[in-house]
Design a protein around this nucleic acid. Structure first.
Lengths: 225, 225
DNA sequence: CCTTTTTTGTTGGAATTACAACAGCAATAT
DNA sequence: ATATTGCTGTTGTAATTCCAACAAAAAAGG
């Protein structure tokens, strides 16, 4: 367990904790690491989930098969990140498969132990709960933003809403985005070339200006040609 | 506060608690109800949020204005439901406005008090934390499912994924959905009539059968005409 | 510097979708 | 029974989007 301290200390769940604090809380949680081979399944769709996982080494894929057997990968969980926390906290049944994309070491934690302050001896449990809730809440906010974008009917509206949100987040009409064109198209779930065309139109209409990842919203009425 | 006990007891956050337990925990949280008039704002975009809200009476709308002043309502929060919990837990800045659609009474709770077990005298704080996390986790799971649907490029794929998921959730090839056609179209963010046409095609191809809200997935290869 | 690779913009045709308008049907009310 | 209302399916047209292929520009590597 010793050698995992650096990973844990920089993880979303345990961030900000010292080695001493980590020792105390890991003892309190009675969490044990477990090794998995590449392509080995951690759990399957429909399994009852009571533990969350934290990737100590390697990488985990969350995947799904629909009724007709078509497979999709829904997320890749890397070192220091947690998974299955929502399934363990709420529905207790997983709608997804989890398998290791590489040889991996996973730390499993009973969700009840994570969320219940056990004894006064473990003084860092409150911090853990705060971190855990912050992770859930942040995912929530990001997903809400994504849904807002995906709900727009046209590519133009998806772009305008996305850019408007970025501008508001960075509190400036000029801002940079964390995507290249292909990534932005994937995020908005549209065709890259069609999106590129819409960006060009918006620039020609004087609504936005851009250079690579830097965008600027110009104070133009949307209806103006 | 007395008269709000029935509402609280059936709320997502405090469900399952007796009046005695509620008294203890409300005392522990030092939560105070506050009245708002119709159309009165609770907070604005960009405000720093440290408290979550619970609607005791009335109704709250979460809304947003984009860069060009176009307004949209993102959610309606009704009696017994909570809001602003994610903003208070993570980013601390609200990307949304909250205002009352009717005269309302809101119970505000400091998020730190909700998440930190204060003293041993309040034995139900652990239950509260579990409930709180369950609410966040459930929203998370629902949003993931919605994103999966919205990400599909064609109406046909949106329908197939949605129906496949419902079938898997209800563990049966035959199942009912909680939407009528217009609501389903809104959920999938497509045009109702176009969706209706796609449903007809899928039925003609022998892939699905349906009558009103009852659907059945027939064991047909997707590529079959 | 030149070559290779990656990213971005552009085009045209095929497919899909939105939109509007209307008809059929069921449920409800008068 | 009749009228009203709401829900669903159908149709045709216009607009949008996807897709594939290619060109231009930028970045990376030798």
């Amino acid at each position: 367990m010793q050698n995992f301290f650096p990973i844990l200390a920089s993880s979303t769940l345990f961030k900000g904790m010292t080695e001493e604090e980590l020792k105390a809380i890991l003892n309190c949680l009675k969490a044990v690491p477990k090794n998995f081979s590449k392509d080995e399944y951690i759990f399957h769709m429909g399994d009852t989930i009571k533990q969350m996982g934290l990737v100590l080494t390697g990488s985990v894929h969350l995947s799904k098969e629909d009724y007709w057997g078509r497979k999709t990968i829904h997320a890749e969980i890397g070192q220091g990140d947690i998974f299955a926390e929502s399934f363990a906290s709420a529905v207790h049944k997983s709608p997804l498969n989890a398998y290791c994309a590489k040889n991996s070491t996973i730390l499993f934690m009973d969700i009840r132990k994570v969320l219940s302050v056990c004894s006064s001896s473990c003084s860092f449990h409150n911090t853990l709960i705060h971190n855990f809730v912050a992770v859930l809440a942040e995912k929530n906010i990001k997903m809400s933003a994504k849904i807002e974008n995906l709900t727009q009917k046209t590519t133009k509206d998806k772009l305008l809403i996305y850019l408007s949100n970025q501008s508001q987040l960075q509190q400036s009409a000029k801002f940079t985005i964390p995507f290249n064109r292909q990534e932005l198209a994937d995020y908005l779930s549209v065709d890259r070339s069609a999106m590129s065309m819409e960006l060009g139109k918006l620039r020609d209409q004087g609504i936005i200006a851009y250079d690579k990842n830097t965008f600027e919203i110009l104070n133009k009425n949307l209806t103006t040609g």
